[in-house]
Design a protein around this nucleic acid. Structure first.
Lengths: 138, 138
DNA sequence: CTTCATGGATTACGTGTGTAATCTATGGAT
DNA sequence: ATCCATAGATTACACACGTAATCCATGAAG
């Protein structure tokens, strides 16, 4: 037992807007140090290194990143997969805004956004697959 | 000019979790007083009337509800349509979590949720319509 | 007329968020 | 041996949010 050994909670913690940008770096790059994260964020944000450090620390505190000592620096690693966190956010978003219902959400999107043809086809393929998976045979 | 005459902003303000619950009451019922809103919220939340009042006041301040004097009470009316607010939230959610892309969102949903057959069909119809609208003739 | 319930206004208070600066220790450069 | 850049730790600070309580005025009830 190495001390501050926070057990992985069952569900991902809630991740704020700014924190998502940070998490995306770790999901893209895998385990990284502060310096590496700061470099990755240089294009695409104008955060000072201290700001990034604060966000990382908060993510550690809330259990979204784990820490491992690496020489005199720390290396941070996502505790949850991006897919898990995305799913969590998706559910909470649909619940809050659309009473949990997917159909009105997509209705709004296709009505007001111009969905390019190839996306429409991709979406259709998703539905086909979902149907196949759920109707094993027959 | 009656004083606190805030002009309708072009875009809906950002609406928090608790505030969504309140806005939904006004979208459902149309213009209503505090008392009516409190009654509507009694089932489905255990908020004290003062809490509801605070949320309404904040919604007025941020320009999501407008006020009109009605005897000694006020009547509150949504400034933006529910659809507008939903669209706004949808865009910001997709941007934050899925880099703005719809396909990965739906991919996650159909992979991890059991979408009932009739919803799948409803979603397909939405795609068909979207396609038709975007390919006027030809 | 007095009392009470209720609305609006003001105030509260802990936590989360965005955005850092300062303090302290130390590895690397000179 | 000394100085600097940088990491982690601590501290900051205003605004948003969830969740009210208190204060003041007034219409309704008695």
């Amino acid at each position: 037992m190495k001390g501050r050994n926070q057990r992985k909670p069952v569900a991902p913690p809630s991740i704020s807007d700014a924190e998502w940008k940070v998490m995306n770096v770790f999901w893209d790059r895998g385990p990284s140090t502060l310096r590496e994260a700061v470099e990755s964020l240089e294009s695409g944000s104008d955060w000072k290194p201290r700001t990034v450090q604060t966000l990382i620390r908060r993510l550690v505190t809330k259990g979204a990143l784990s820490v491992e000592e690496l020489g005199r620096e720390f290396r941070y690693t996502p505790v949850f997969s991006q897919a898990d966190c995305q799913l969590d956010e998706s559910r909470s978003f649909l619940g809050r805004v659309f009473d949990g219902r997917l159909v009105p959400f997509l209705a709004g999107m296709v009505e007001s956004e111009k969905i390019p043809q190839e996306e429409i086809e991709a979406l259709r393929r998703l539905l086909d697959e979902a149907e196949k998976r759920q109707t094993p045979s027959e």
